[in-house]
Design a protein around this nucleic acid. Structure first.
Lengths: 243, 243
DNA sequence: TGGCGCAGTATTGTATGCAATCGCTGGTGC
DNA sequence: GCACCAGCGATTGCATACAATACTGCGCCA
């Protein structure tokens, strides 16, 4: 597993987590290079640990690792995006199947508390709102008690975030909150077809934001796909050597 | 990813592959320690590469990595086994859904050739037969064109092999060959419900070999379970179709 | 005699150093 | 003027060295 290191020095895990968050928040744009040296100095560790973290991120599909050419933030193609969504759909349907009608009161309470948090964040913080909307699905997976499912959903959700950052329109969270509420109700009611339909529709909505439109006007994403470098970095010789 | 290194020195990948095969063939039993030094000297490389390979194997769930205590071949619990099977079922159903009625002649030919190879190996080589039976599922995933699905199915199938080596009865391949043939027929016919039912039944059969019987007499598996973890309740009949 | 603490050893975790490879810049020939 | 190639800098791949931690056996004490 990936996380069984709640021990003393989860240093590599810390780097992994930090880079992951940076990528998902688009602080590191798809296609951006990730030099080991720079990251190592930034985190105050050696390249060894950075390498390990990058390897894990590559296994999750968040970074691309080309031999002798270093690591860069992954820039999934539309075909890959479709693949990811198809699998995510199957996994999440598995989760709602497992939970439907078996939701214990404490579990339902956790879900509802989470949606409340979503609703609260919706008004104030955009990034927080997006993050919470994603974590709702993680929570669902966690409640199934299937650790592997949780890991997979986490990985797939991450990739989806990356994909949406490439191809997606801005996230509108209000519908998500409502759909999450409806799903909880269906889970409590034990209405399996409704659960599946709701989840399916919900994911289709997310997917539709990414895959259907050619997304006119935003050529940055397109360029990022065809050029190996991030758009917003004009100066090429910029070196942060021990600055 | 595991495969995007068809380049010049896939040395780490070679070690990864070798260890993987050794584990799946039970040359390395679940729970066996995997000292970095020893492996490194055996392969004629440094510990660095071995570490990378072990990390990948850990990500696949084939080895367990405990901090400051090194790596050992994973020994999944029955609960983990159930989790793996539930997810594998969902993934393989996704695959047959994607292929059902869309099988091109060349693809069908590949499947049938593979089953022929299975049938041929069945008479002669036991290990080869088992390997081919597993690779049939990999081939199905590959034919969907969904690379991520292929990766997941590969990982899940590996874990299943490991689980069967712990809890399973000896593999009887004849039924598998017949079931594979039937599945191909249903795929060609485009009979989606039949496809799903066949795959479901097929996987349930595999799963049943592992999860139902207490497997009397083999205490190695039992000891492996109770060695490093708190002893769960005695092996009761797992609910196969729970998910 | 059996349990406990303590050193020695073995093994892992991390850092650093060296060689190899890639991409780029400047030069050269056509 | 453009394309090609050689040299160079930057960056990665891998190995080794050092430090930290967990496991072994032995001696000590109750």
């Amino acid at each position: 597993m990936t996380e069984p290191d709640p021990k003393s020095p989860p240093r590599a895990a810390a780097i992994h987590q930090a880079l992951r968050q940076a990528i998902l928040e688009q602080a590191l744009a798809p296609g951006a290079k990730l030099p080991e040296d720079l990251i190592a100095s930034q985190f105050g560790v050696s390249r060894t640990l950075v390498r390990e973290a990058l390897g894990r991120l590559a296994a999750e599909g968040l970074v691309e690792l080309r031999h002798n050419r270093g690591a860069s933030v992954a820039a999934p193609s539309l075909a890959e995006a479709r693949d990811v969504f198809a699998i995510r759909r199957a996994m999440e349907l598995l989760a709602v199947d497992a939970l439907c009608g078996r939701l214990e009161p404490a579990q339902a309470a956790r879900l509802e508390a989470h949606v409340e948090a979503e609703a609260a964040a919706q008004a104030t913080s955009g990034p927080t709102s997006i993050r919470l909307a994603g974590e709702f699905h993680l929570l669902l997976a966690e409640l199934t008690g299937n650790a592997l499912l949780q890991r997979y959903v986490a990985e797939l959700a991450s990739r989806c975030s990356l994909i949406l950052s490439l191809y997606g329109r801005p996230h509108s969270a209000d519908c998500a909150v409502e759909e999450h509420r409806a799903l909880i109700a269906a889970l409590r009611a034990g209405d399996a077809p409704a659960c599946r339909a709701l989840m399916d529709h919900h994911l289709a909505a997310v997917m539709g934001r990414a895959l259907l439109p050619p997304k006119p006007g935003d050529m940055r994403a397109v360029l990022a796909r065809y050029a190996g470098t991030p758009a917003p970095s004009p100066p090429r010789r910029a070196k942060a050597r021990s600055a």
